[in-house]
């Protein structure tokens, strides 16, 4: 379970997060939506422990992520997976080696076991024929799928997605969302996804959080969004000002 408690964050005295509180239950998948530049990625980076809040805290299964350091933080992060907007693949490593990287570094498995596990992950994301290619030699959609495979290969308990379908054509974007949905059904991870694919992302998640002006303006099931009394929420969902 992830509990975000009253997080505030400012950059150069400009407040970005103004007291965010949110709880993601174990096994739950939450979409974080909002207009561009309103702090969704900043919030997700707090949840992953990449940023420290000015005040407030993030609890992961009761452990205060904001106060952890060194090996304790590394141990907690070993339970995380994160799919970055740009994939964040290691550009000097092949698709296979990118997916194998966390297994080689974090486990004592033999190369044979690693190869079996990596190939299974690549089959799951449909990249079994591209394992020898470098990230620069594959398409944007394949980069996202490789990043997903790399995140999944360690079977994380918590998985975060920062706009995994950004920059992809609608069909490929839908394919990535379907893949994420399938993985969540199979692996039951606790997840947060930032997405602009509205309303398609609503089919994938259990609940939706709407971030506007540094505050959560809606947190509930997707089908309650259009009935929200908050104009900013309705505008975001309908796409009309």
């Amino acid at each position: 379970m992830i509990q975000i408690e009253n997080i505030t964050k400012s950059f150069d005295d400009v407040p970005v997060l103004r007291g965010i509180s949110l709880t993601v239950e174990k096994g739950e998948f939450v979409a974080l939506i909002g207009r561009s530049g309103y702090g969704k990625s900043v919030l997700l980076r707090h949840v992953a422990g990449l940023l420290k809040p000015d005040s407030g805290r993030v609890l992961v299964d009761g452990q205060d992520l904001t106060s952890l350091r060194g090996r304790e933080l590394e141990a907690l992060r070993s339970r995380f997976g994160f799919v970055f907007q740009g994939g964040a693949l290691f550009d000097s490593l092949s698709v296979f080696d990118n997916v194998a990287f966390p297994l080689r570094e974090k486990t004592r498995k033999s190369e044979e076991e690693i190869a079996t596990q990596v190939r299974a992950a690549l089959v799951r994301v449909g990249l079994e024929t591209s394992e020898d290619k470098l990230p620069a030699q594959i398409s944007g959609g394949m980069v996202k799928r490789t990043a997903l495979a790399r995140a999944l290969v360690m079977e994380p308990e918590f998985l975060f997605f920062d706009e995994p379908e950004t920059g992809l054509d609608p069909l490929t974007a839908q394919g990535v969302l379907d893949l994420i949905h399938e993985c969540h059904r199979n692996l039951k991870f606790t997840g947060i996804i930032i997405s602009h694919q509205l309303p398609r992302v609503f089919d994938v998640v259990d609940r939706v959080a709407v971030l506007h002006n540094g505050q959560i303006r809606y947190f509930g099931p997707p089908d309650g969004l259009e009935r929200s009394a908050d104009e900013a929420v309705r505008q975001l969902v309908t796409g009309r000002a």
């Binding site: 990449l50 907690l76 992060r77 970055f84 290691f90 966390p102 570094e105």
Partner: peptide, 12 residues
Amino acid sequence: GQQLDALELMGL
């Protein structure tokens, strides 16, 4: 390219 962040989030 957020590769350093990716390392951190792998617990490395």
